[in-house]
């Protein structure tokens, strides 16, 4: 691997001088004290868009409220249902958009393709060109998914990247990388792990992590997904 001028991805909020250090949640509509350059820019743009009648504060709040409803727990429910309902799983693999639509999850202008991990095949998702991600199913993508390092390397050396997540895919398993570069969005349907026999869908959903629905991790019976 050639030398790269950044030894880590600087997609973190802390590097830009405004570290105000307090923890109380801001109403995103208010400008906090000590706001940094880009924070000011975004608030300036918001105010101007409202003043010019392009959007209203209410429009913004509605969008933020919708965003709040999108979390990996939605995807986990889809996976758990596929694990416990073979007819649903079949529909999910045939037409992901329609199947998640049954569960009240809309895909907007995009379409969902669900790819299944098997003992012979492991799937992993990336968007090398930007950060396309099934947001209505999983919420906002994590920093690493949007990072230069992930997007550059997972297409060319997926097993090395997966090892950095603590996941080893043996050479006997075919690794499929899906580059989400157009109108499709992807969800990995992981294999149901051992030690979960007889579990309810609700209990199963509790171990389906976001990372395993992107394909960089595998679910485990004793590892709970973040709340």
């Amino acid at each position: 691997m050639a030398d790269h001028s950044h030894d880590h991805d600087h997609d973190h909020g802390h590097e830009h001088g405004h570290g105000h250090g307090h923890n109380h949640p801001h109403d995103p509509i208010e400008v906090p004290d000590g706001a940094g350059h880009y924070e000011l820019m975004v608030h300036a743009v918001k105010e101007l868009l409202i003043e010019k009648g392009v959007i209203t504060a209410d429009d913004i709040r509605k969008t933020l409220e919708f965003m709040d409803t999108r979390t990996p727990a939605l995807g986990a429910k889809v996976v758990a249902r596929a694990w416990t309902d073979p007819a649903f799983k079949k529909r999910l693999l045939e037409d992901g958009t329609k199947a998640v639509g049954e569960m009240g999850i809309g895909m907007g202008d995009a379409e969902l393709i669900v790819v299944e991990n098997t003992p012979e095949v492991h799937n992993v998702i990336v968007c090398t060109l930007c950060s396309c991600y099934p947001r209505t199913v999983l919420g906002l993508p994590p920093d690493w998914y949007k990072s230069r390092n992930y997007r550059s390397r997972v297409v060319a050396e997926p097993r090395a990247v997966l090892r950095e997540f603590g996941t080893t895919v043996p050479d006997s398993v075919t690794l499929r990388v899906h580059d989400s570069n157009a109108d499709m969005r992807y969800l990995v349907l992981p294999m149901r792990p051992p030690g979960t026999e007889g579990w309810s869908a609700e209990r199963l959903a509790g171990i389906v992590t976001r990372d395993c629905m992107v394909g960089v991790s595998l679910p485990k019976a004793d590892v709970k997904a973040a709340a």
Binding site: V155, A156, E157, P158, R159, A160, D171, S172, V173, T174, L175, R176, V177, H178, D179, S180, N181, A182, D183, M184
Partner: peptide, 16 residues
């Protein structure tokens, strides 16, 4: 795609 690809010869990349 990759001249020095390390991994299974069966590995795939799929895109739209």
């Amino acid at each position: 795609i990759w001249p020095e690809y390390k991994g299974s010869a069966n590995d795939l990349l799929e895109l739209e």
